[in-house]
Amino acid sequence: MILKGVRHVVNLLATSPANGLLPTSRSGVSLNELALGQLTSVAPFEGQIVAVEALLGMVLPKAGRTVGKLGAELVWFSQGQYLAIGFDVDDAVKGKAAITDQSDAWCALEIKGDKSEAVLARLVPVDLRAATFKRGHALRSQLGHMPLHITRTGKDVFRLLSFRSMTGTMVYEISRAMDLLDARG
């Protein structure tokens, strides 16, 4: 354990994953970093879904969906796995589900604007147009060659999650797609 405080180590400053890299924008699209707060993965043990829902006070989302609202959100994350965003998961859930703190593991970006779909279309091999991917829909796919979790949070707004260690590449890839789209006018 590292003892913190001036007598033990220097004061450590927490920096966000995309610190110094964002925001950036082009005509019709902007890219910002999101501070999501507490992130916890929740994977209910076999036969414990109802018990977990009771403890969370929320119904778990179906595959590819999200439930809740800003600050208390549950998103589908993988097979049998959910991500709790913005709130503490009660310790009581531990006995009914595998829970893991993910707060520092992900970089969360928000791409916004009427050209955001067109930018993502260059990077993500899934149809993200509003007709099939509506507000509150979420899925896992790829951004270029990187793992990606994406949620449509608004009409022209998407939340993108990828591994924190890949933040630089993530920002570079999206910025480059924004440049190339911008160059076409």
Partner: peptide, 11 residues
């Protein structure tokens, strides 16, 4: 069966 139809590169 979980996610629906996807590109081969995801597999």
């Amino acid at each position: 069966p979980v996610c629906g139809e996807r590109d081969r590169r995801e597999f």
